[in-house]
């Protein structure tokens, strides 16, 4: 379903991704690990279509369609979701309004009917409860005054509502204590199904104890350097990146 071919991408004129290949089949969870500066976040932004992250070569095919020239909102409507490493605070916009607008926008794009408000609130309450979030967090402005863990849970809540077919988690584990990590992982695992795939970008193996990947890739110098099964993450944790990248990273 996701096929990245020879992807080259620049940020501010500097080439960060230098011929990246990756194939993720439906239902699979892939982990991308790599040292700082290897291009992990760039990959996630390029997939989500962030302005300033320019594809200079190669293709991103998703469900048979080239995503390269699509706007971020179009990609979202096609089922791509990026959980941010640093979720953005938006003062004055209530979280529930934001979630409702997002869901309705995606539904409109897909030619589906907007969800009735009462139905939406019901659904929202149920999902909120599953993630051990308080209703209070729905009334508050988007991410404003949220702790690090609450922000990450809010990302997973958005994911649970939009039900993406490809979820990209960009260092979602950073700054989480073990309890929050479990809640986040449970939220992600709850979405696992034969149609949905995930790309879990992480620096540490810890998250992968809870979200068990089908494949682990090591990204360095803008390319996938090595691919293995879930055991690769443990190997990495023990040995460090140097063995896989060819030099000390």
């Amino acid at each position: 379903m996701l096929e990245i071919k020879d992807l080259h991408a620049t940020v501010g004129g500097t080439e960060i991704l230098k011929g990246l290949h990756l194939v993720v089949e439906p239902g699979e969870v892939h982990a991308i690990m790599g040292p700082n500066g290897s291009g992990k976040s760039t990959l996630s932004y390029v997939l989500a279509g962030r302005e300033g992250y320019d594809v200079t070569g190669g293709r991103i095919i998703y469900n048979g369609e080239d995503l390269t020239n699509l706007e971020p909102e179009e990609r979202a409507a096609k089922g791509i979701f990026l959980a941010f490493q640093y979720p953005v605070e938006i003062p004055g916009v209530p979280n529930s309004t934001f979630l409702n607008e997002a869901l309705n926008a995606v539904r409109r794009y897909r030619g589906e009917e907007e969800m009735d408000k009462i139905e939406f609130i019901k659904m929202l309450r149920a999902k909120t409860k599953e993630l051990s979030m308080s209703d209070e967090m729905l009334k508050r402005a988007v991410n404003v005054g949220f702790s690090g863990g609450e922000k990450k849970r809010n990302e997973v809540l958005q994911m649970a509502i939009l039900e993406p077919t490809l979820a990209i988690l960009d260092e979602t584990d950073s700054g989480l204590d073990i309890d929050a990590l479990k809640i986040v992982a449970d939220g992600v695992n709850a979405l696992r199904s034969p149609e949905r795939s995930s790309l879990v970008i992480t620096h540490y193996q810890r998250l992968l104890d809870y979200i068990v990947p089908d494949k682990v890739h090591i990204l360095a110098k803008g390319r996938i350097q090595h691919t293995g099964g879930k055991e690769l993450a443990h190997e990495l944790e023990a040995k460090g990146y140097a063995d896989f990248v060819g030099e000390a990273a």
């Binding site: 279509g49 971020p72 909102e73 979202a76 990026l82 938006i90 926008a105 995606v106």
Partner: peptide
């Protein structure tokens, strides 16, 4: 912030309005 909203499916024009109101 604009990218954040758009990445959730909110069209650019609406995202800009939301940020102005915010």
């Amino acid at each position: 912030a604009l990218f954040y909203l758009r990445s959730r499916g909110i069209p650019e024009a609406l995202a800009r309005n939301m940020l102005v109101q915010s």
